[in-house]
Every structure is written in C-alpha cells, then in structure tokens.
Design a protein around this nucleic acid. Structure first.
Ligand SMILES: [Mn+2]
Ligand SMILES: [Mn+2]
Ligand SMILES: [Zn+2]
Ligand SMILES: [Zn+2]
Lengths: 136, 136
DNA sequence: TCCCATACTGACACCGGGTGTCGATAAGGT
DNA sequence: ACCTTATCGACACCCGGTGTCAGTATGGGA
C-alpha cells in the first residue's frame, strides 16, 4: 500500500529545486506552509519560485510522501512524517508536533461509520494544545 | 459553559436577514457554505447581501450556535447542531451528516496530550465516507 | 408615537492563498 | 552532443473571505 521514501517515478526528473525542498523538509520537524518553505529557501540562497514550491509540495502530498494539515485560517501546511498511519498533537503556539497512534480511535471510527451504513471510510483526527515549553 | 439557544446579547438587534438565515439553518440538515446559503435565500426571494451572510454565519459560529467544518478545499461550511459535544460522520457524495459521540475518543485525546505535557487541549475528529444511498 | 444613538446592511475595493498559462530552461535517454 | 519533454517561474487570474463606509433600520427612551 505505502511505498518507500526514495520512489523514482518514470518520467519524473530530479531537479535542484525538488532536492532543496526535500532537504529542507528533512530538517524541519513541524508543519510549515508553502510560503514559509519558500521564504526559508530564499533565505538560504536557493533560487526558487513560489509557484514551484506550491506545486512540489502538493505533488509530494499527493504521492503520500508528506502530510498536509489545514490551519484554522485554511492555509495548507506540510511535514515529512513516518510512513505508518498516525495523527498529530500540535502546539498552537510554537507548532511543535508529536506523532501519535490510537488503535482504539481507528476501530471506533470504523465501527461508527459501518453502523450507519457508510463505506470507503476515512477520518481526520488532530489534537491541538499548548506544550509545556510554551507555558512558562 | 454552554448557553441555551435563544441567547439575547445586549446590543444585538434582531433583523430580517438574521431571522432568514436562522430559519434556513433550521430547515437544512447538512453542512452548507456561506455561498450556498446566500444562493438559497435569494432563490426564496429574500433580499440579502453575501457579505451579511458571511458575517452572520461567522457570528453564529463564534457564539457556538452553529458548527463549522472546513472542506478539503478550505471552504467553511455551517450546520445547526445539537448543543452537546459531538463529531460528524459525513457522506462525501451527498453531504448527509450524522452526529456521533465517542467518549473513548475524548478520553484518548486528553490522555495522549497530557502524557506529552500539553494543556488547554482541543481536538477535531471527523469521519467521512460514502452513505448507503449513494452506493446504488 | 416620535426621536435618535448606533447596530446593521451591503456594494465595492481589497487581501491572500492558491492555480492556469506559456515561453524559457534543463533533465536525461540515445 | 542532440533532442524530446518534464519542469520552472513570472504573471495574470480565480475565489473565498474581510475592511470600508455611506445609507438603513432597530429598539430603548422621551
Ligand atoms: Mn487514524
Ligand atoms: Mn470530541
Ligand atoms: Zn509550544
Ligand atoms: Zn450520501
């Protein structure tokens, strides 16, 4: 179902821009918007267009290589995560992110949906709070 | 914590436009965007501006009178729900919505967050699938 | 019933995240 | 090297939503 990280799709070319985005995502640990990432790359001297960043992040998300989260303002943010199914615990102040698992939740969602006659069930679960460091 | 439905806030005036939106929300049973609601009101002959619909829905949401859901496209959609804490099971085709409860999920979210040192914990849980009627 | 301060309305300009276009560029197979 | 074509990125554009502000209407008081 899930494919390993360095997937090489035929017809896909490896460019300097994509490498730069991939490298940056490896270094970051929290969710960042396309503009954040573009800004950071420019700061580091990478010549790259905002459109390219938008498109590349979206492609990575479509390929399942990175996770997408919508901020309350509706802005998309991205993060390189582990391959296994999980959810996120995010600090509303510093955006520190922890991957969490919850088999009980998975089962509950499935059960509730089936009981109501639903199929092809999907779900979103996100926990937001203020981390210990941000409460000083 | 939660206040009952017909809250009268001092300084708040009851207008024809707000009444129309409130009435429509009572009749609808699924999540609708501001533009959906505006369109439906115009179809019914209500003279009302789109800006007013946007603002009123947002105010109702802020007051906790209606629930907000963000579509995958980032668009906000609204629905009048029950007063108790619940989550939603939504059909991705017809948008049919079922309110569901899950005490186990509430506890799990709280526990996981506390274990990682988080406070002021909030969470979002939504289940999406295809309802029986939409599988014919 | 009339008055009036002011909450509300809504047309319009504007904002900002994101997408379509398309000529220029550069992978990478041969 | 050469050539096909995926990719880039400046730019125009889309669209949901917000700020502005002159005009309107509510509702508490006289
Ligand atoms: Mn899950
Ligand atoms: Mn809950
Ligand atoms: Zn924090
Ligand atoms: Zn359905």
């Amino acid at each position: 179902m899930t494919e390993s990280r360095p997937t090489v799709v035929p017809g896909q070319r490896s460019t300097r821009q994509r490498a730069a985005i991939g490298d940056l995502l490896d270094q970051l640990d929290d969710f960042r918007s396309a503009q954040d990432i573009h800004e950071e790359l420019r700061r580091r001297g990478e010549g790259i267009g905002l459109t390219t960043v938008y498109r590349t992040l979206q492609a990575l998300a479509d390929a399942g290589e990175i996770d997408v989260l919508r901020t309350s303002a509706g802005e998309a943010s991205y993060r390189r995560c582990s391959d296994t199914h999980h959810h996120h615990l995010v600090c509303r102040v510093c955006r520190r992110t922890v991957e969490v698992e919850g088999p009980a939740v998975e089962h509950w969602a499935e059960k509730v949906a089936v009981e109501h006659g639903f199929a092809q069930i999907d779900h979103t679960v996100e926990i937001i709070g203020t981390c210990s460091g941000c409460r000083s």
